[in-house]
């Protein structure tokens, strides 16, 4: 069974003129369990839309989005939310940590909607990612790299089968970017999660054995700089 199997996926959006336009069209995409793949794509290539569709944040208008054998396109919103909580970790480009919560609490928050809070595991994840002495720091007290590691710990908190990462080096300086990427790949391997990264950073793309060009993958004629 594939970890991820996309067939004939189409996502449409209402453009400013009011008409529906197809912004994403992916005939086929597969990931094996534990596999790490990088999708190369620049901004406007529909990469965030694709990740959102896989995460179930955005509904597929056509086709199948199977994650671990379950077709998200067939689920209602509430079922997709629950499925995401249990099976998919998402590391956003800007991390989206909650400012009012400490690093550990951000990780625990990710668990609330999944199997429930497991403080020991949350602490373990942060320690593994080198944040053992930052458990109770608020996001604004952490460096950008540390914030990303908190986001990664949160993504792994519910022992997901698949981790999605949107431009994982986009907010980091080039010196630490590859190190951060290495940590992310290692952590996903350690926890048995597949990893799907989208990036336009050549260094990132070069780091992966499996890579695909999103511009080729996506048949939809997307407007550069438009809706992602």
């Amino acid at each position: 069974m594939n970890l991820l199997h996309i067939q004939g996926l189409k996502v449409t959006a209402r453009n400013p003129g009011g008409a529906n336009a197809t912004i994403l069209e992916v005939p086929e995409l597969r990931l094996d369990p534990g596999q790490q793949v990088c999708l190369a794509g620049r901004s406007g290539s529909g990469k965030t839309t694709l990740l959102n569709a896989i995460a179930g944040i955005r509904r597929a208008d056509e086709g199948r989005v199977e994650v671990a054998g379950k077709d998200l396109a067939q689920m209602g919103e509430s079922a997709r939310d629950r499925f995401r909580a249990l099976n998919i970790g998402y590391v956003f480009q800007t991390f989206h940590l909650l400012g009012g919560y400490s690093a550990l609490e951000n990780v625990l928050l990710g668990m609330l909607f999944g199997p429930g809070p497991d403080r020991a595991f949350g602490e373990q994840l942060l320690v593994e990612l080198g944040l053992g002495d930052r458990l109770h720091h608020r996001p604004h007290q952490l460096s950008v790299g540390q914030q990303q590691r908190v986001a990664l710990a949160r993504a792994l908190a519910n022992r997901p089968k698949l981790v999605l990462a949107d431009e994982p080096t986009g907010s980091l300086d080039p010196g630490s970017a590859l190190e951060a990427l290495g940590l992310m790949r290692q952590a996903c391997r350690d926890h048995g999660a597949g990893l799907l990264v989208v990036s336009h950073d050549q260094a990132v793309i070069a780091d992966f054995e499996h890579k695909l060009d999103l511009a080729e993958l996506n048949r939809a004629s997307t407007i550069p700089g438009g809706a992602q």
Binding site: D81, R84, L109
Partner: peptide, 16 residues
């Protein structure tokens, strides 16, 4: 609004 969107992305349902 952002906080709720994040909670939703973490798997919180609308009704939550």
């Amino acid at each position: 609004r952002r906080e709720f969107a994040i909670l939703r992305s973490l798997g919180a349902r609308r009704r939550t």
